[in-house]
Computed example of a mutant assay.
Amino acid sequence: MPQEIWINLPVKDVEKSTAFFNEIGFQANNVGNERAKLSIGQTTILLFPDAALEKFAGARIADTSQTAEVLFSLGANSREEVDELIRKVELAGGTVFGKPSESDGWMYGAGFADLDGHRWNLLYMDESKMPKGK
């Protein structure tokens, strides 16, 4: 049984995407020819040029201006962490599609798209306010 999963993500410009993710506080490094490794916690996301990923996948990549092919959801440690990351995203050229807001009295989150339109969700859950099961 496989022990690791690597997510392969198409990008238009590996260098610009690498810079964007580093600017917002993630760890991204160029590796090899025209690709980069993005590390978020224990998750590895490999950034590949669009054409390379189409070749590997044997299919065209999604047009992120028209569709969402995936939503990456990230846990935050506080409301302030959500606000700070969204501020960094805006400064780095990303697009905020969901301004920070509270939901259900115990969740606080926001959503953004990176330079290539891939969608990311940030969520802080205040477990002390979480509804108890019946």
Rank of each mutant, 00 (worst) to 15 (best):
P2C: 02
P2H: 12
I5S: 09
I7D: 00
I7H: 09
N8F: 14
L9E: 04
L9H: 01
L9Y: 01
L9G: 01
P10F: 04
V11A: 08
K12W: 01
K12I: 08
V14F: 06
V14S: 03
E15A: 15
K16N: 12
S17Y: 02
T18W: 01
T18D: 03
A19H: 10
F20P: 02
N22C: 08
E23F: 00
E23W: 00
G25P: 09
F26P: 04
F26G: 04
Q27M: 08
Q27W: 01
Q27D: 13
A28V: 02
N30W: 00
V31C: 09
V31K: 07
V31H: 06
N33A: 13
N33Y: 08
E34H: 10
A36H: 06
K37I: 10
K37V: 11
L38I: 05
S39L: 14
G41K: 12
G41F: 09
T44Y: 06
I45L: 13
I45D: 04
I45W: 02
I45G: 03
L47N: 02
F48D: 03
P49D: 07
D50Q: 11
D50E: 13
D50I: 15
A51Q: 13
A52V: 14
L53E: 07
L53Q: 05
L53V: 07
E54C: 06
K55E: 15
F56Q: 13
G58S: 09
A59V: 06
A59H: 09
R60G: 06
R60W: 00
I61S: 10
I61N: 12
I61Q: 11
I61V: 13
D63A: 08
T67M: 10
L71Q: 07
S73V: 09
L74C: 04
A76D: 02
S78D: 04
E80N: 11
L85I: 15
I86M: 10
I86N: 02
R87S: 15
K88Q: 13
L91R: 13
L91M: 10
L91I: 04
G93C: 09
G93I: 07
V96L: 09
F97C: 06
F97L: 05
K99L: 11
K99Q: 15
K99S: 14
K99R: 14
P100Q: 07
P100D: 10
E102I: 00
D104V: 01
G105C: 08
G105Q: 12
W106C: 10
W106P: 02
M107D: 00
Y108E: 04
Y108R: 05
Y108A: 04
Y108G: 02
A110D: 03
A110M: 08
A113I: 00
A113W: 01
D114R: 07
D114H: 05
D116Q: 09
H118A: 11
W120E: 02
W120R: 03
W120C: 02
N121I: 00
N121E: 14
L122H: 05
Y124R: 05
Y124K: 04
M125P: 00
M125S: 04
D126F: 07
E127V: 11
K129F: 08
K132Y: 00
G133P: 14
G133V: 11
K134G: 12
